[in-house]
Design a protein around this nucleic acid. Structure first.
Length: 310
RNA sequence: GCCGAAGUAGCCAAGAUGGUCACGGCACUGGUCUGAAAAACCUGGGAUAUUGGUUCGAGUCCAAUCUUCGGCA
């Protein structure tokens, strides 16, 4: 990875994370205006062109957000590509003496910025292997991985042992024949990161999600899906996205619209829950509870303090 | 008002002839995950409408009450 060529005082990165429907973008924009910031999205779905209503690209006009609309819905994307593009942008923004503000809810993508040195990220996905292994049952995958590396298999927790995606990835790494241990690079602390993470109890998030769901229906989500289906199919990676995948049964006349909307709402709820779980486990971040009356001021103060302005 | 049907967790729902205090799904809870992450997984708690009866034993049979639905008036 290219190292940033900026002085130590100028290598700041502001991160604004948090579960869906907490108002991350609004906060990011208002901080960008105050601190000469440029936004970089950390959103694994807004990278897709054409997924606008469902992924909430209703950003204020005239405010550029980087790393959205990168690819079409039939293309693959992953965290390593994100990491590469994000660091390129960060360096570019630093070179203009501006503050990169990473904003988004995809915890893994943010993690690739905060903890960039992942020992397996250099092992590329094996499309051929994935194509065939995706047809195998979980128990077959377990058997294969146990055969290849019994010790590692036994050390996996219950959740991982039943997770076909993870098993396939482990097998992929194993079969690559590369030695993972020797590829750890020390690359930390090149940046001065302030990570603010918006949070709220689910009892607050669920109603916010529900009204937003309704709003997205009102402003034409179904038309958007109808248009996408002219060009893309349900098996394309981009359509495996909340707000889209739930309507497959509706468009195939298997389910009523109301049932699909309910499933979508509940999927959004559990997505928010997973995000909360993820961010809870992260270190070196400041949680900001958006149900507290002056949370915006709190965020502002933290940034000022970071700049020694307070 | 009469006749019929039904009442199992927040919702849907299984339970042959009574016999491990009850299958699931959704919701909800907590967690996992180093190139799919808005992905893919793991985990947990909660129920037989009420009261009485028959029986060694009742979600399952009987009665009353309450509630809901349908029909007749």
């Amino acid at each position: 990875m290219t190292q940033p060529n900026v002085s130590l005082t100028e290598n700041r990165i502001l991160i604004i994370s948090g579960p869906t429907a907490t108002g991350k973008t609004d906060l990011a924009i208002s901080l960008a205006k105050k601190f000469n910031g440029v936004l970089i999205s950390a959103d694994s779905r807004q990278i897709y062109q054409g997924l606008d209503v469902g992924t909430g690209k209703d950003h204020p006009k005239g405010f550029k957000i980087n790393l959205i609309d990168l690819i079409t819905p039939d293309q693959d994307f992953s965290v390593v590509q994100y990491q590469k593009l994000a660091f390129q942008k960060i360096i570019e923004i630093h070179s203009q003496n501006k503050l990169p503000i990473i904003v988004g809810g995809t915890g893994l993508y943010i993690d690739s910025i905060v903890n960039p040195d992942k020992s397996t990220y250099f092992i590329r996905p094996n499309k051929f292997l994935r194509f065939f292994f995706n047809k195998l049952s979980t128990s077959t995958l377990q058997r294969i991985y146990r055969l290849l590396d019994k010790k590692s298999f036994d050390s996996l927790n219950n959740s991982e042992q039943h997770n076909p995606h993870r098993l396939i990835r482990k097998i992929e790494i194993k079969l690559s024949g590369k030695d993972v241990i020797n590829h750890i690079q020390i690359n930390k602390n090149n940046f001065n990161i302030l990570h603010l993470s918006l949070t709220a109890p689910t009892s607050c998030l669920y109603p916010r999600i529900d009204t937003r769901v309704q709003k997205r229906l009102d402003i034409g989500l179904l038309d958007e899906i109808k248009n996408l289906l002219k060009k893309y199919s349900w098996s394309d990676p981009g359509l495996n996205t909340l707000a889209y995948k739930e309507f497959r049964d509706y468009f195939n006349h298997q389910k009523s619209l109301k049932d699909c909307v309910d499933v979508w709402r509940f999927d959004e709820h559990s997505y928010a829950r997973r995000q909360l779980t993820w961010f809870k486990k992260q270190t070196n971040l400041h949680f900001i509870d958006i149900t507290k009356p002056k949370y915006l001021l709190l965020a502002l103060d933290l940034v000022k303090k970071w700049y020694n302005l307070s």
